[in-house]
Design a protein around this nucleic acid. Structure first.
Lengths: 195, 195
DNA sequence: TTGCCTACCAAGCAAGCGCTTGGTAGACTT
DNA sequence: AAGTCTACCAAGCGCTTGCTTGGTAGGCAA
């Protein structure tokens, strides 16, 4: 049994387990010892990979936000129809919140207040690209009369509505993710989606 | 300077300061010592009024939820017009989230996961009366064709949208609470509010 | 073969945590 | 006047926390 499994393999595993634990229990209630145990090392060894506990949270968010931006950009560019585009954005955000990357996404959505002021600002800056995709799409929709609400306010309300689903929506119920996205879009648009 | 200012005065002050601190810093990041200092006593003396730290959080939520139910019920009964009623509910919830009682309301909205499983269930049960008022109004609106979304899902989406405003809405900006309530209702209803 | 580097262990430190204990000043009751 | 109760203080206990330190096994390069 080699002491060195693979370069940076442990670091990735630490980030993954941290995302899971932070989501399930919250950042403050998760101890470094608990995280270390989850990947099979001792607590002190965690600090060989990260300089502080907060840096772990930061890395969880950073890698997650990168992924979120990629996914949302792809969704945005998947169609040129504005209505369809907004549906895809909604659908993608819900997918992010409930799919395989849900742990990190939930943490990025709801646990930024566990960061210090500086890192909070850093994360907020990273999210800006993500929010800009939303704002662009909403502004397009407003110009074409598909929505009659302010893009800025609308996006913030939508952020809350979508993010909050992690606390009540269960994938295995009879309400599928598509249905949920449909319900959200019914609020967003005055008329049902065409096509 | 009398040792006994007034009966249960300190307890009320403790709940108020706890609500403020829990909102500003979160439950875990607020220490009993810090709370004690905020009301001018030593940390041990807090446990003369409460049996545990968690009981303080529970009391913050309990008293807050009582107030929320009263406010929402009053709003619901203030009009018999369904559209107007829903607007009043939205307006009232936003008022609760940003008015004088905002500390406790924010805590009740976003910090229930800091409670143990038993107390979580207890709080959830208390909120049921609050949610029922919403569901009744939404069901009425659906029957009259004012909305075309599921009341249950709609309420949950609305919970997130409204609750999330505590993280971005600022009272002193040019967007007033009335304007905000109006924007929310534009999402909710297909047509602008009449009257 | 020597020497360095990575990834870890073993042990533990200082600080802070929630909470307990024993005692007491002052108000209230009888 | 005596006894009781409330609301607190002073001190500290046991425990957990994030993090540090010193050392070492194994892989790799010269």
């Amino acid at each position: 049994m080699p002491r060195t499994p693979r370069l940076d393999d442990r670091r990735e595993r630490l980030i993954g387990e941290a995302a899971r634990l932070f989501r399930e229990q919250g950042y403050e209630r998760t101890s470094v010892r608990q995280l270390a145990e989850a990947v099979g090392i001792l607590s002190g060894s965690v600090f060989h990979h990260f300089s502080s506990k907060e840096e772990i949270l930061l890395e969880v968010m950073r890698s997650t936000i990168d992924h979120m931006i990629d996914s949302l950009r792809e969704a945005s560019e998947s169609t040129s129809d504005v209505e369809q585009r907004l549906y895809q954005l909604v659908r993608t955000e819900l997918e992010l919140l409930h799919g395989q990357t849900r742990d990190g996404v939930a943490v990025a959505f709801f646990q930024w207040h566990s960061l210090g002021a500086d890192n909070q600002r850093r994360i907020l800056a990273m999210r800006e690209a993500y929010e800009q995709i939303w704002l662009d799409a909403l502004e397009q929709a407003r110009r074409r009369g598909l929505i009659d609400t302010e893009p800025f306010v609308t996006r913030r309300l939508l952020t809350g509505a979508n993010g909050w689903t992690i606390y009540w929506y269960q994938q295995d119920g009879k309400l599928g993710l598509d249905d949920l996205a449909d319900q959200v879009c019914r609020l967003l648009f005055k008329e049902p989606i065409t096509g």
